[in-house]
Simulated assay, not measured.
Amino acid sequence: MTAIHGVIEAQSQLVLTREEGLLASVTTLGGLRRWRDALVQANTRPDGSYGCALGALCAQLPDDDERSRTALAAAFERWHQLLIETLERLRDLGVLTVDADPHKLGTGLLAALQGGYMLAQNAHDPQPMADALDMALDRIDTFASR
């Protein structure tokens, strides 16, 4: 295993373990907002270290490193699956209406998160991340059972 593959494995494990822990207990839309708050808070560092460890690795890889890209794609797919499972749980609990599409909403949520990470990193300000996640969560809220 090369050094970069070891870094990818370690960072993937770190991020996915964190996400599993945060998302496992989400049973309300308020819980989903608390997940958002935890990510935004974690992205606010006194030293200006903003961004996603996995996204940063993606940006740094050469196009011909297929092994690394495959490993990162698997990590992102697992993250996506965690979001889908959370949204399915909310739908199954009746928090979201039956017409909510967890796959589509999970894709939008992950895209907002990753885009938000990138914008926050560039601006050295977590607000763009918070705003992107708020927009995605506002969309999910349109499927809330009333």
Results as ranks from 00 to 15, higher is better:
residue 56 A to I: 08
residue 106 G to R: 03
residue 107 T to K: 12
residue 65 D to E: 14
residue 37 D to H: 09
residue 124 H to L: 12
residue 24 A to K: 08
residue 51 G to Y: 03
residue 33 R to W: 03
residue 118 M to W: 12
residue 123 A to R: 15
residue 63 D to A: 14
residue 94 G to K: 11
residue 33 R to N: 07
residue 96 L to N: 02
residue 78 R to H: 11
residue 10 A to K: 12
residue 36 R to Y: 05
residue 90 L to T: 02
residue 57 L to V: 02
residue 43 N to K: 06
residue 15 V to N: 03
residue 126 P to S: 11
residue 123 A to I: 10
residue 111 A to H: 10
residue 57 L to H: 08
residue 61 L to Y: 10
residue 132 A to D: 06
residue 63 D to M: 11
residue 24 A to D: 07
residue 48 G to E: 07
residue 26 V to M: 01
residue 134 D to W: 05
residue 135 M to R: 15
residue 23 L to S: 05
residue 47 D to F: 11
residue 92 D to W: 11
residue 140 I to G: 01
residue 12 S to D: 02
residue 52 C to F: 05
residue 126 P to C: 07
residue 118 M to S: 13
residue 61 L to G: 04
residue 89 R to F: 05
residue 33 R to I: 02
residue 135 M to Y: 12
residue 14 L to C: 08
residue 109 L to V: 03
residue 113 L to R: 07
residue 20 E to R: 15
residue 48 G to R: 13
residue 18 R to V: 05
residue 123 A to S: 12
residue 66 E to I: 13
residue 106 G to T: 04
residue 72 L to N: 07
residue 74 A to I: 03
residue 21 G to H: 09
residue 78 R to L: 05
residue 115 G to F: 06
residue 4 I to K: 06
residue 105 L to N: 03
residue 66 E to W: 13
residue 90 L to F: 08
residue 38 A to P: 01
residue 4 I to T: 11
residue 54 L to A: 09
residue 84 I to D: 07
residue 104 K to E: 14
residue 62 P to E: 15
residue 56 A to E: 15
residue 43 N to A: 09
residue 96 L to V: 03
residue 12 S to G: 12
residue 30 G to I: 05
residue 25 S to F: 05
residue 100 A to M: 09
residue 78 R to F: 02
residue 63 D to G: 14
residue 146 R to I: 04
residue 17 T to P: 00
residue 97 T to L: 11
residue 96 L to T: 01
residue 97 T to Y: 08
residue 27 T to P: 00
residue 129 M to R: 03
residue 141 D to Q: 13
residue 78 R to C: 02
residue 63 D to I: 10
residue 86 T to K: 05
residue 56 A to M: 12
residue 143 F to M: 02
residue 129 M to S: 01
residue 103 H to Q: 13
residue 68 S to R: 08
residue 41 Q to E: 15
residue 60 Q to I: 05
residue 34 R to P: 00
residue 43 N to G: 06
residue 46 P to Y: 12
residue 40 V to S: 10
residue 146 R to L: 08
residue 144 A to D: 07
residue 33 R to T: 07
residue 101 D to T: 06
residue 22 L to M: 11
residue 60 Q to S: 14
residue 51 G to H: 09
residue 15 V to L: 07
residue 130 A to P: 02
residue 18 R to L: 08
residue 136 A to N: 03
residue 87 L to N: 01
residue 74 A to T: 12
residue 143 F to Y: 15
residue 86 T to S: 06
residue 121 Q to R: 14
residue 2 T to A: 07
residue 143 F to W: 09
residue 26 V to T: 01
residue 126 P to G: 04
residue 71 A to E: 10
residue 94 G to Q: 09
residue 103 H to V: 13
residue 56 A to Q: 15
residue 70 T to C: 08
residue 45 R to G: 09
residue 98 V to S: 15
residue 56 A to L: 13
residue 131 D to R: 12
residue 83 L to P: 00
residue 63 D to Y: 10
residue 60 Q to D: 15
residue 143 F to A: 03
residue 88 E to G: 06
residue 75 A to D: 02
residue 24 A to H: 07
residue 116 G to V: 01
residue 85 E to C: 04
residue 27 T to L: 01
residue 28 T to K: 04
residue 89 R to P: 00
residue 83 L to Y: 04
residue 71 A to K: 10
residue 18 R to I: 01
residue 82 L to P: 01
residue 109 L to Q: 02
residue 11 Q to V: 14
residue 15 V to T: 08
